[in-house]
Design a protein around this nucleic acid. Structure first.
Length: 311
DNA sequence: CCCCAGGCTTTTC
DNA sequence: GAAAAGCATGGG
């Protein structure tokens, strides 16, 4: 058992962007008895916060994804990155009101999560609400993942890891569709994408190469059925650590129009308009961290403007 | 029955 | 080529 303390110079707010269900959603821990858990690289991981700037991580193995836990989790939680760094100097002068509203959202982390898990979960996120997406991902884990029964602080906890590419590649489309909101097309796309990963047609290791232009990463991922610009950019941002990737979904489209006066963002989200909105975002934000900024703006928009209760 | 939800694919001009 | 329509499903 390994216990780590990770501290940051700035406040932390950790939200699971992969919709991994209530039982293993990272939360903003209000008190020290509260904790969250999930499986990372076949390793039960427990997280709790000790203060606004310090979190405790407990895991079993001395290595996670080939790295020392200390290194892995600092990277996983982007501990050394300040959300403010994603906004250029003149941003607070140009958008003073928005800057004030954003204050509570700079601590939001972009987690560097598993690319396969990221791919499948965002394939489950087409044109449906957060609640249903979470249900799908939880069901995928429960039906196709491995079960872990563990205890933490004397509390029994049951967890499921996210299914492997092999597990989903060999799934039956009709059965799998129970876990994809009864959408068989989505189930079929997930199976074929999983096969592509198994066969090495999609190699996340090589897509991780930072010298690879984002357009090339996007093009490769878009070869898969069911993946367009938005999902490709989500995989790049959340799964490949490409913080320059700026996924434009219905919410991002809305705040790009409302907050930044993007005329393109008020038009239908065609591929051409998508690229224009991304280009606009790179003008307003720090380009190499545009996606990171987008994530902060996204959560602020949903909570402060749309008044949605959950993250 | 309407609209919306962390879009993508096919058809049509 | 790019714009418009079609698709799929559950929830409010």
């Amino acid at each position: 058992m390994i216990r780590l303390l990770l501290n940051s110079k700035h406040k932390l707010l950790i939200i699971d962007t992969l919709f991994s269900g209530q039982t293993f959603t990272w939360k903003y821990f209000s008190d020290s008895t509260d904790f969250s858990a999930r499986i990372i690289d076949n390793n039960p991981v427990f997280v709790s916060s000790l203060s606004d700037t310090e979190i405790e991580v407990v895991c079993e193995d001395s290595r996670i994804a080939g790295m020392l836990p200390q290194e892995f989790f600092r990277d996983y939680f982007s501990m050394d990155l300040d959300g403010r760094a994603a906004f250029p100097e003149n941003f607070r002068l140009k958008y003073p009101d928005l800057w004030n509203t954003l204050e509570g959202y700079f601590p939001v982390r972009v987690l560097k999560q598993d690319p396969f898990e990221t791919m499948v979960t965002f394939m489950c996120a087409q044109g449906i609400g957060m609640r249903i997406i979470r249900n799908q991902v939880s069901m995928l884990a429960e039906h196709y993942g491995t079960r872990f029964d563990v205890t933490f602080r004397d509390i029994p906890v049951t967890l499921h890891n996210f299914p492997s590419p092999q597990a989903l590649a060999s799934a039956d489309a009709v059965k799998l569709s129970r876990c994809t909101n009864n959408n068989r097309i989505r189930a079929r796309n997930i199976i074929s994408a999983s096969k592509a990963v198994c066969e090495g047609k999609i190699d996340f290791g090589s897509l991780r190469d930072k010298s690879l232009p984002l357009e090339q990463v996007r093009r490769k991922l878009c070869e898969l059925d069911g993946i367009g610009y938005k999902i490709a950019d989500c995989i790049a941002l959340f799964g490949l650590g490409r913080f320059d990737a700026f996924p434009v979904d219905t919410h991002v489209k809305q705040f790009m129009s409302q907050w930044f006066g993007s005329s393109t963002a008020s038009l239908p989200l065609t591929p051409a308009n998508y690229l224009k909105i991304v280009a606009g975002a790179h003008q307003i934000l720090v380009p190499e961290l545009a996606g990171y900024a987008g994530h902060i703006l996204f959560h602020c928009w949903r909570k402060e403007v749309k008044k949605l209760r959950s993250y």
